[in-house]
């Protein structure tokens, strides 16, 4: 009986707080994406020819965890198969957040472009019932500064 109560309390807490946190996070992501939209990120491996840019490696990383409620839903999904939307949202948040952190670092250095952007994903809490749980995403690229003679 006590176990059931704890489970229900965790479920409701996870649901309410998790939903609120996710909504707030998405709001902040969208707002910062708008602010940083002037800085172009390119996946191309080769820098624009001709100009001589100064460059620097920039990184952005984040570890995000899924809440109790969503983990339970995902566990149920594992029985029936199909799309696990709760994990899709988790990875989407992590990817966008890490890219934003990288862009913020690049913007601070006065970069014009970020070239050769790569993502790297790792699940950290491995070993616990085979669940993803929390995920780390690292985004990295080469920031190209405005050529000095042009400025």
């Amino acid at each position: 009986m006590i176990e059931l109560t704890i489970f229900l309390v965790l479920m409701t807490l996870g649901y309410l707080v998790g939903q609120y946190a996710e909504k707030k996070h998405y709001q902040s992501i969208i707002e910062r994406e708008k602010r940083l939209s002037g800085l172009t990120t390119v996946a191309s491996r080769f820098p624009p020819p001709g100009k001589q840019h100064d460059q620097c490696l920039v990184l952005g990383s984040v570890v995000i965890s899924v809440d109790y409620f969503k983990r339970f839903i995902a566990m149920l999904r594992n029985l029936f198969g199909g799309r696990i939307t709760s994990y899709e949202a988790l990875l989407d948040r992590a990817r966008r957040e890490s890219l934003l952190r990288m862009k913020e670092q690049a913007a601070k250095m006065g970069a014009e472009y970020v070239f050769n952007v790569k993502y790297e994903t790792a699940s950290i809490s491995k070993g616990r019932q085979n669940t993803i749980g929390s995920v780390e995403v690292l985004a990295y690229g080469t920031a190209l500064m405005r050529p000095r003679d042009e400025a």
């Binding site: 965790l10 946190a21 570890v63």
Partner: peptide, 13 residues
């Protein structure tokens, strides 16, 4: 604790 509520794990980051 954060595993219950979800969100960023700043310590791990």
């Amino acid at each position: 604790l954060k595993n219950i509520f979800g969100g960023e794990l700043k310590g791990y980051t």
